Amino acid sequence: MTDRLQQATSGRAGLKLGWLSGRANRKEYWIWIAPLLVIEILLFGLGPVATLAVAIVRLLVWIRRLHDLGWTGWIAPIFNVAASVLAFALQFALGPDPAALAAAGVVLAGIVVLGCLPGQPFDNEFGPPPGRKAANPAETFG
């Protein structure tokens, strides 16, 4: 069995979707996250659809950043769901506005932590470190 076929059958073969795959270092992360936060704050009054569009892009940036840390991208949606559950639970104790503020604080803390942790300086299962070419030409052209 070839390596690529073995990876595909074991579930380790990642989709190569250009910008959506691979790793994002801290600089690239902040280049995307800082404007997204400003846009999300500006669009907050327009309703949930506008905020959701920005949140989806933020989720994709988080996934690439988690890949740079060597972690699975599934942590990002799990974190978002946990923050939403926290907001829902806090609504009964604090009311809707303080609960939303607490959930936003948790998400902001996650954004800052992801932006401060250094990525892995070596190749991991998600590719080489950002800014460095793949060591094997087959990874580049395969």
Score class of each variant (00 low, 15 high):
84 S>C: 01
74 W>Q: 10
68 D>E: 08
96 P>V: 12
108 L>G: 11
69 L>K: 04
20 L>P: 15
15 L>N: 09
27 K>A: 10
60 L>F: 10
55 A>Y: 08
57 V>M: 15
72 T>Q: 12
70 G>S: 06
56 I>L: 13
43 L>G: 05
52 L>F: 03
53 A>K: 05
80 N>H: 01
44 F>P: 00
45 G>A: 02
57 V>R: 09
47 G>E: 06
79 F>C: 01
22 G>P: 13
64 R>S: 00
23 R>K: 15
77 P>W: 10
74 W>H: 02
47 G>F: 03
108 L>N: 00
45 G>S: 15
55 A>H: 08
110 G>I: 10
61 V>C: 14
13 A>H: 13
103 A>C: 03
78 I>L: 10
64 R>Y: 00
98 P>H: 13
62 W>G: 03
55 A>D: 11
81 V>M: 13
19 W>T: 14
13 A>Y: 07
34 A>K: 06
40 E>W: 12
62 W>L: 02
88 F>A: 15
82 A>W: 03
83 A>M: 10
102 A>W: 09
13 A>I: 02
102 A>P: 11
64 R>G: 07
37 L>K: 14
48 P>V: 10
82 A>T: 06
98 P>F: 02
105 G>V: 08
87 A>E: 02
39 I>V: 14
58 R>T: 15
95 G>Q: 01
72 T>S: 15
61 V>R: 04
44 F>I: 14
31 I>D: 04
68 D>Y: 04
41 I>C: 11
108 L>C: 09
40 E>S: 07
98 P>A: 02
57 V>S: 15
61 V>K: 14
82 A>L: 07
69 L>R: 05
37 L>N: 14
55 A>W: 06
67 H>G: 01
52 L>N: 15
43 L>A: 04
94 L>W: 13
61 V>M: 02
29 Y>T: 06
59 L>E: 12
84 S>Q: 06
52 L>P: 07
17 L>T: 05
25 N>D: 13
28 E>G: 13
22 G>M: 08
44 F>K: 05
28 E>F: 14
12 R>S: 08
112 V>K: 03
72 T>W: 11
111 I>T: 08
36 L>E: 04
39 I>K: 15
88 F>N: 12
15 L>Q: 13
70 G>K: 10
38 V>N: 07
23 R>L: 04
94 L>E: 04
39 I>G: 12
20 L>G: 07
30 W>G: 02
112 V>Y: 06
70 G>V: 04
106 V>G: 12
98 P>Q: 09
39 I>W: 07
97 D>W: 03
94 L>I: 15
102 A>T: 15
77 P>N: 04
56 I>Q: 07
49 V>I: 13
31 I>T: 05
85 V>A: 09
40 E>V: 03
73 G>A: 01
101 L>R: 13
101 L>A: 08
54 V>G: 08
32 W>F: 12
23 R>C: 13
87 A>H: 14
113 V>Q: 11
67 H>A: 00
87 A>I: 01
99 A>Q: 07
11 G>C: 11
11 G>M: 01
57 V>K: 11
